[in-house]
Simulated scan of single mutants.
Amino acid sequence: RIREHEGLEISHIREALEQAAKAEIAAIAVQPIYLIKGYEYGVLSDLVSSYGDRLGRAALGKPLLSDEGDLDAVIKAVTGRTASYDDGKTAICLVGHGTESDSNRIYVRLQEKMEKAGYGNYYIGTLKKEPGAEDVQRALKKKGCYKRVVLEPLMAAAGGHVYHDMAGEEADSWKSVMERDGYEVECILEGLGQIPAVCSIYVEHVREAISSLQGICI
């Protein structure tokens, strides 16, 4: 998709690791843009580990939501981007991917922290796991004061999930579901990676990964 729309050639991580091994790179840090330690993060971790014999040292950076400080920083970032919508009549719904792994509970924790911080018009749901669209629907109806819904991706980049599952015209998209409930719906078609404060979290994580490589300081 990137090659088609932007003309950029970006190697698959396996290709990049292979190139590094052939170039006899002594140390490498890999920073994923995943939000949580879900299934994909585990697959990546195994892949990086499999190059242990060919790369002198390798470190894998943490995903975006790795500790309480990360959650606080992301809350500040996403609420800052959508502050103008928070008028008491608009529900801001953050739509994540979700995972079958135990790390899915981070979405629930993020919701708890947002409520505790006073962001009562923000709701978190996922495409693949609970809380799902139906859970968010029930929460909005229970509140009973909303006229408008803003859908914001809780994902690093706006790809197919955002354009189809969240904001698409398909009958089962979040946009269509909310419109059938009578809400005016607006979609933000930018991932978290478009927010500088979120990028700073990733940068800090890759710094930590680099620092973990023996003998390398930054």
Rank of each mutant, 00 (worst) to 15 (best):
V108L: 14
R207P: 04
G69T: 08
G191H: 02
R180T: 10
E9V: 12
P32V: 08
Y41R: 00
E18K: 14
Y202V: 00
I36V: 15
M114P: 10
V185M: 00
L17N: 07
R105A: 14
E186V: 15
E134C: 04
Q137P: 08
S173W: 08
L64Q: 01
G193M: 06
V198I: 08
P32M: 01
Y123Q: 00
R138Q: 14
Y39N: 04
V78F: 11
Y123L: 05
E169Y: 06
S212I: 07
I75P: 06
E186T: 14
V136K: 07
S84D: 12
L71E: 13
G191V: 03
I25A: 14
K143G: 10
H12E: 09
L60P: 09
K142H: 11
P131Q: 07
E208M: 04
S176Y: 11
R138I: 07
S50V: 07
K116H: 11
D46P: 06
A20E: 08
V95L: 06
E204M: 02
K175W: 01
Y202K: 05
G160D: 15
S211D: 15
E179I: 02
A197T: 13
A139D: 14
L17M: 14
P63L: 02
R105E: 14
A157K: 02
T99M: 11
G52H: 13
R14F: 06
R105V: 14
V136W: 00
Y122D: 05
A59M: 13
S84H: 15
P32E: 04
L94W: 11
A16C: 00
Y51V: 01
Q31W: 07
A29G: 08
A21G: 12
G160K: 11
D172S: 13
V95K: 07
C145G: 12
W174A: 05
M114T: 05
D181W: 10
K22G: 05
H161W: 01
E204H: 11
H161G: 11
A23H: 11
A21F: 01
L94I: 06
R109C: 09
A197Y: 09
S11N: 09
H12S: 09
L35R: 04
Y202L: 02
V78W: 10
S200C: 06
L65R: 06
G120M: 07
S66H: 14
Q214H: 13
I10Y: 10
V78N: 00
G38F: 08
E15F: 03
I36E: 08
Y107C: 00
H161F: 03
G118N: 04
W174C: 10
L60F: 12
G98T: 04
G80Q: 08
A157M: 14
T126V: 11
G52T: 01
E4R: 14
A83Y: 06
Y122H: 11
V177T: 13
K37T: 13
I195H: 12
H164V: 05
T82D: 09
S11T: 07
L94R: 06
A58W: 01
A59Y: 09
E6I: 08
V74M: 02
L60S: 13
V30H: 06
R138P: 12
Q19C: 03
H5T: 13
K128Y: 00
V150M: 03
G215V: 03
V149E: 03
S200A: 15
V95Q: 01
E6S: 12
E4P: 06
I188R: 04
I124P: 02
N104C: 10
I92S: 04
A58G: 12
D172K: 09
L64S: 08
E115T: 05
K116P: 02
R138C: 11
K143F: 01
H5R: 14
R180W: 00
I13A: 05
D172C: 00
